[in-house]
Every structure is written in C-alpha cells, then in structure tokens.
Computed example of a mutant assay.
Amino acid sequence: MSLQDQFEQAVAESKNLPERPDNLTLLKLYALYKQASSGDAAGERPGMTDFVARAKWDAWDALKGTAQEAAMQQYIDLVEELKAQ
C-alpha cells in the first residue's frame, strides 16, 4: 500500500475515532492534513476576530518546510495513536 493510500485510509479513519480528540490534537490533525495535501500555508493570516481560522492557519504555518510525505506519515502515525487509546 502506497503512502498516499495509507494517508487516505487514515483520513477516513480519523472520522471514526473512538473518542473525539482534544482541540490541540484536532489542530495538529488539521495542520498535518493541510501540509500533506496542499504544502506550505498560503494566503493571508486570518484576522484577530476569527479565532478558529487564525488558530488553524497558525498551526498549519508552523509546519512550513515539512515535506508533504513527512506530513502524511506524521498524520498516519497520529491517527494510529488515537485509534489505540
């Protein structure tokens, strides 16, 4: 199974975890997903009044320079950890 296939499977499995992850873990999943699927953060940083969008963008931007394959593997590993809890 290719890394892309494993990543897509992990994305599907992330929607059916036994417990909803905490907000920091959800942000990490979001950021790894965006980095793996789109590369480095793009566009303007959302304004101070949009707290959720700003937190998501900042989490994604923190991964700048991470290779898409590395982000995929980290996402897969994190989903596996969450499934085991």
Rank of each mutant, 00 (worst) to 15 (best):
M1F: 13
S2Y: 06
Q6P: 10
F7R: 11
E8C: 14
E8M: 14
Q9T: 15
V11C: 15
V11N: 15
A12Y: 13
A12D: 15
E13K: 14
E13C: 13
E13F: 12
S14V: 08
S14F: 12
S14Q: 11
K15W: 15
K15D: 15
K15M: 15
L17K: 14
L17N: 14
E19T: 14
E19G: 09
R20T: 13
R20P: 12
P21V: 07
P21W: 09
D22N: 11
D22R: 07
L24F: 08
T25G: 08
T25C: 07
L27V: 12
K28I: 05
K28E: 09
K28C: 09
K28G: 08
L29D: 04
Y30N: 13
Y30E: 10
A31Q: 07
A31G: 12
L32K: 05
L32H: 05
L32C: 06
Y33S: 10
K34T: 11
A36M: 10
A36T: 10
S37E: 11
S37F: 12
S37V: 08
S38N: 14
G39C: 13
G39K: 09
A41Q: 10
A41Y: 08
A41L: 13
G43P: 10
R45F: 06
P46E: 08
G47R: 13
M48A: 11
M48P: 05
T49Y: 08
D50M: 12
D50C: 09
F51G: 08
V52C: 03
A53D: 07
R54Y: 04
R54H: 05
R54W: 04
A55P: 05
K56I: 05
K56M: 06
D58K: 10
A59T: 04
W60C: 05
D61V: 07
D61T: 06
D61R: 11
A62Q: 08
A62L: 04
L63K: 02
L63W: 03
L63T: 04
K64G: 09
G65H: 04
G65R: 02
G65V: 03
G65S: 02
G65W: 03
G65F: 03
A67S: 10
E69S: 08
E69R: 00
E69C: 02
A71L: 03
A71F: 01
A71S: 02
A71H: 01
M72W: 04
Q73E: 06
Q73K: 07
Q74P: 01
Q74L: 02
Q74Y: 01
Y75V: 03
Y75S: 04
D77Y: 00
D77C: 02
D77W: 01
L78V: 02
V79G: 00
V79S: 01
E80P: 00
E80L: 01
E81M: 00
E81A: 00
E81D: 01
L82V: 01
K83W: 00
A84D: 00
A84C: 00
A84Y: 00
Q85E: 03
